[in-house]
Amino acid sequence: MLGTTRKMKRVACASLLVLLAACGSAPVAPGFYRVERGDTLSKIARSNRQSVQSIVRWNNLTNPDSIEVGQVLRVAPPGGAASTSGAVRSGGNASTSASASAPRAAPADDGAGAAPASAISLVWPADGTVIRRFDGANSKGIDISAAAGTPVVAAAPGTVVYAGNGLRGYGNLLIVKHDAEYLTAYAHNRVLLVKEGASVKRGEKIAEMGDTDTDRVMLHFELRYQGRSIDPSRALPPR
């Protein structure tokens, strides 16, 4: 029974990175919607007078049938761009109208519009060379390469809400919750130096860089706002 309880706790904690449980039920910004139980993308699109295709594009979704309760979706055009809702015009055809008025594909939206640039300030979580940057699609954060054992520090003060290796692809992982909306994740560590529930200060050493569940020594660092990955470089000082 004890083993089952521990396993359930580990699975629940591992889900923090992809669900909004870590962010609670904080209100979403205008133009965004938090997925509720029973929602489908078609239902959300209809409720917001948009097309499914637009919402898929704005949120960079790879599988429109795979949305999760608590996930925050953009449901209004980013930056005031024209909507391609495909609404039927008088005497027109919906699909033809949408196709004709669709703008060129916009760059992947990272949700930055919903997160004030000054809302959180980070320090670099490790010294080293940035070998991969955030693009919102294939990279949900930044990768920093350095020697094994390089100190990994908390980018901002907060509470450790996950410390373990139960999430495939992240190796030894730490997740630090900073407030009701922001959290940071630190992956592939050689060793974790803090436990769940610990309070950490900005710049405090929390792990050592390693290569767990990856093919080279590096730190994969993510910043999440209301459960959604955003570009960490927006909150990091320039190098």
Rank of each mutant, 00 (worst) to 15 (best):
I44M: 02
A94P: 09
V123A: 07
S99T: 10
Q53C: 12
N172T: 04
G210Q: 07
C13H: 08
T129H: 10
G166P: 05
S229V: 00
L193A: 07
T129F: 10
M218S: 13
P157E: 15
G92Q: 15
L41K: 02
G158F: 03
A108N: 07
D211S: 10
P116M: 05
D215H: 01
L17I: 05
A21K: 14
N48H: 14
G70T: 04
A187P: 01
A94W: 06
H220E: 02
K140N: 13
G111T: 04
T129D: 15
Y33N: 06
T214P: 00
N189M: 05
G164A: 02
V69L: 06
A108R: 07
I142E: 02
Q53Y: 14
H178D: 07
D135T: 05
N172M: 03
Y170W: 04
G164I: 04
D65P: 09
L219A: 00
K205R: 14
Y186K: 05
S85N: 15
H188N: 12
W58F: 12
G31I: 00
P151K: 10
A14S: 10
P151Q: 12
S199N: 10
V75I: 07
D127Y: 05
A146D: 01
A108F: 10
A94D: 11
A163N: 00
G92F: 14
M1C: 12
E68C: 12
P125R: 00
E36T: 14
R89W: 14
S15Q: 15
Y162Q: 10
K9D: 13
D179N: 11
A12S: 13
V176M: 08
A105C: 11
T129Y: 14
A76Q: 01
P64Y: 00
R190Q: 04
S47E: 13
L2F: 01
D127F: 06
Q226R: 15
A76H: 06
A156H: 09
Y33C: 03
L236F: 03
S229T: 02
Y162D: 11
S42F: 13
P30C: 02
V11W: 11
L174N: 07
D65Y: 12
D65A: 12
A102D: 10
E222D: 07
S83V: 06
R168Q: 14
S101A: 12
G197E: 11
D231A: 10
K7R: 15
A102E: 13
I206L: 04
V72A: 07
M209C: 00
E222G: 01
H220Q: 08
G158W: 01
S54L: 14
L174M: 09
R104Y: 01
N59W: 08
E68V: 14
A185Y: 04
N93H: 10
L173M: 03
A154C: 04
S54I: 13
A45R: 01
A126M: 09
A163R: 01
L192F: 03
A76S: 10
D127C: 08
L174E: 04
L17H: 02
K201I: 00
L183V: 01
A117K: 02
K177N: 09
R104V: 10
S229A: 15
G149C: 00
G111D: 06
K177I: 08
A235S: 10
S15D: 13
S15T: 11
